[in-house]
Design a binder for these strands. Structure first.
Length: 494
RNA sequence: GUCUCCAUCGUCUAGUGGUUAGGACAUCGGGUUUUCAUCCCGGCAACGGGGGUUCAAUUCCCCCUGGAGAUGCCA
């Protein structure tokens, strides 16, 4: 039997870390087993589903390089793969359960249910949830309510006694007494759309899904779904509940922990390789040695046995580390292409950039490559090359434990040598600056730092000679002259 | 409240009935370097508690504790 798995998101928000982790595990499992990966859109919540969310889903999967074998856009033998387009099917199956006495119509208003719930919470009642008010209405009562045109929902008649068990691939057997299962959950809402429980079971069966891999938050409704399969007389699929992804405080990962939308990570300049690799390591590991995996490698090596049981905390710092690694792995040409949009957004270069600008970006790449954690870091790292910098403060120009007169001497002396840079070459000038430091009896840094601050406006920058070259000698020299003036003023005023 | 699940360094994890409990991130220290970063070397750091089973438990069982999730006409 070939493996068939699915990712079935509801398009009610941007794709987030937890969602794509589930998508990825399903996808890797399908590929590793030479099975099929199905995408299904669960848009049964008419209120919250949005076109924007759907577009975000497609964009995210494409960015990650996750392609589906069956689903919207590509089609397949069990379509449609969008639940709102399968509307009639759910009516049919829900009615079937009603006519067989396995489900019933409930006429309770949401006001009544809300009041009921509020009371249960206030009384700390042992019985939480629906009170099965409509479960045993007589024929006459039902007829009267129908006559009066009272809207209804369809609820599952959960057995009052006995217990239900399903076998989870990871957890082992999970059992719940039927009286503990959600009391008669709604299957068909008053707008006639199915709830998750109904649609999910029908579709997984119709689409011949063999393994249901979803987050552990679904464990409690596992037995309920089994009841549904049994009510329909269908064979149950294999379940595998994936460990959840948590925030740093151990709670379910959410916006308050930081970015969770894939879109946000993408905008900040995370690479799909890095996000995919890191996310896959939360809840799964290959062995104790290996931490880097490409998508193709995971498609080959992924296995259910190595999934962890316990929830994992999403570590933003480790993701950053992965991202830096993958940035450094890029060729200069590839990285330049990735960086250009960020430089455009900062108005450092035109959009689209000129040939000259592209050439310059290519020269900049090797200087910033090993300094980038995310692509957007390029802005602050290279700002001094594209924009005028504020005149440095005296304190900024002074290296640690070095006074203004000495620093002025160093900078002036250095400037004399730097002037010859184009003719003499980097090595010769470098040697002379070292010698200068020696003569002035200061550390090498005592000569280099003032130049760096003068040229880049910061103590932190790409390598100095490269920075000067890329900035252009004229501009660099005028910035040094300005710094010399600042120091001279300082020295004379004392 | 009730139900279900989980439990190795701060974090992600490897692992075994007998190990100096291994790796990675983070952190700290050192080296390379004109700064930062990269890179290299090293340090700190874990089997939640209590009972069993056993010659021996981090490992198997039970209880407790702690954490999480579910308890919707959301998924």
């Amino acid at each position: 039997m070939t493996v068939r798995v699915r990712y079935a998101p509801s398009p009610t928000g941007l794709q987030h870390i937890g969602g794509i982790r589930t998508a990825l595990f399903n996808y890797f499992f399908a590929r590793a087993q030479k099975g099929k990966f199905i995408l299904r859109i669960e848009d049964t919540d008419q209120e919250r589903s949005s076109e924007e969310a759907l577009e975000d889903l497609y964009a995210t999967l494409e960015w990650l390089g996750v392609e589906w074998d069956e689903g919207p856009i590509v089609g397949g033998p069990h379509g449609p793969y969008v639940q709102s387009e399968r509307f009639e099917l759910y009516q049919e199956y829900a009615e079937k359960l009603v006519s067989e006495g396995k489900a019933y119509r409930c006429y309770c208003t949401s006001e009544r249910l809300e009041k009921l719930r509020a009371e249960q919470i206030a009384n700390k009642s042992e019985q939480q949830g629906y009170d099965r008010h409509c479960r045993d209405l007589t024929q006459e009562e039902r007829a009267a309510l129908e006559q009066a045109g009272i809207p209804s929902v369809i609820r599952l008649k959960v057995p009052l006694e006995g217990k239900t068990t399903f076998n989870d691939l990871l957890m082992g057997p999970i059992t719940r007494r039927n009286c503990d299962i959600s009391p008669d959950p709604v299957l068909l809402k008053s707008d006639r759309f199915p709830t998750y429980h109904l649609a999910n079971v029908i579709d997984d069966h119709m689409m011949e899904v063999t393994h249901i891999m979803r987050a552990q938050e679904w464990i409690p409704s596992g037995p309920l779904h089994i009841l549904l399969y049994e009510a329909f007389g269908w064979e149950t699929p294999t379940y595998c509940h994936l460990p959840m992804v948590m925030g740093s405080d151990g709670q379910k990962l959410s916006k308050r922990h930081g970015s969770t939308a894939v879109k946000d990570f993408r905008r900040e300049g995370y690479l799909p390789e890095a996000l995919l690799n890191y996310v896959s390591m939360v809840g799964w590991s290959y062995d104790s040695e290996r931490e880097f995996f490409t998508k193709d490698e995971l498609c080959e090596l992924f296995s259910l046995e190595k999934i962890n049981k316990s929830p994992g905390i999403f570590d933003y710092k480790k993701l950053l580390w992965y991202n830096g690694h993958y940035i450094r792995e890029k060729s200069d040409a590839e990285l330049a292409k990735l960086l250009i949009p960020y430089l455009e957004a900062s108005s450092f270069i035109k959009s689209p950039p000129s040939q000259e600008e592209i050439k310059r970006v290519n020269e900049i790449v090797p200087l910033v490559k090993e300094r980038l954690k995310v692509l957007s870091d390029v802005t602050e790292l290279t700002r001094f090359l594209f924009e005028e910098i504020a005149p440095p403060q005296v304190e900024e120009l002074l290296p640690k434990k070095q006074d203004a007169p000495t620093t002025l001497k160093a900078l002036k002396g250095a400037y004399g040598y730097l002037k010859e840079l184009e003719v003499e070459g980097v090595e010769a000038v470098e040697a002379k600056l070292m010698e200068l430091a020696n003569t002035l009896e200061v550390k090498v840094n005592g000569v280099f730092m003032p130049i760096r601050v003068a040229v880049t406006g910061s103590h932190v920058s790409p390598p100095l000679f490269d920075s000067i070259r890329l900035l252009g000698y004229e501009k660099a020299f005028s910035r040094i002259e300005r710094a010399i003036n600042i120091l001279e003023n300082e020295v004379h005023n004392e």
